[in-house]
Design a binder for these strands. Structure first.
Lengths: 102, 102
DNA sequence: TCGGGTAGTTACTTCAATGTGCGTACTTTT
DNA sequence: AAAAGTACGCACATTGAAGTAACTACCCGA
């Protein structure tokens, strides 16, 4: 299977159309669902919830429900495991920045 | 568009089902088509040629035709641009290795 | 009570990536 | 003469990721 390569574990997290944005958005700290949506305006609610659920199952995103009887309040954040990908993300970003121009 | 993120430039190269394998296989030097196939047995001829063509168009793979009237001989290798991704690849790999076990 | 905010779910559709199976054309080896 | 290697191309089918649109259910402020 493709997952015999260790890279693919990492690509499950940051691969796909929206995951890099979700990752980058959550890097700066916990956010509510609607804040993530505002940060990534082009993603639909459905796709965003799908992505967050999948990332949660992969152990990369933590979902904490602070809702009371009065208010809905859910926060999403990256787990420590996910934060371990930051060096790799930075390497990918800096490569990307060098190879845009032209 | 999603490509506003610099990460996505890099994910065009190493994202997808077979590209990490192709990348890793060619890291060790130029190979012929059939050698790549032997290194990645599960990929079909069509998909492999598709991938190589796309990576060539992205400027990540160099295709050199050494054929004579006698022999077909084509070699594929990574470009210098693509080799610039090695630090990022290593970072992804080492993250993946740490998070397999368990 | 009307619009806007919170956080979703459900059903259906579309589209790009991937896979299957065939044919081409020319070679060397047995 | 037949089989097997090299490097493809083409037509089509399947699959999975992503998108669209509508619905739920509750709260707040004007």
């Amino acid at each position: 299977m493709a997952t015999s390569f260790p890279v693919n574990r990492a690509l499950e997290i940051i691969g796909g159309k929206w995951r890099p944005q979700v990752y980058c958005t959550l890097q700066d700290g916990p956010l509510r669902f609607s804040d993530i949506q505002r940060a990534i305006p082009d993603v639909s609610r459905k796709v965003l919830t799908d992505q967050l659920r999948e990332l949660e199952q992969l152990g990369m995103v933590r979902r904490i429900d602070y809702s009371t009887e009065k208010h809905l309040h859910v926060e999403y954040s990256l787990t420590e495991d996910a934060l371990g990908l930051q060096p790799a993300m930075n390497a990918l970003c800096s490569w990307g920045e060098c190879h845009d121009k032209k």
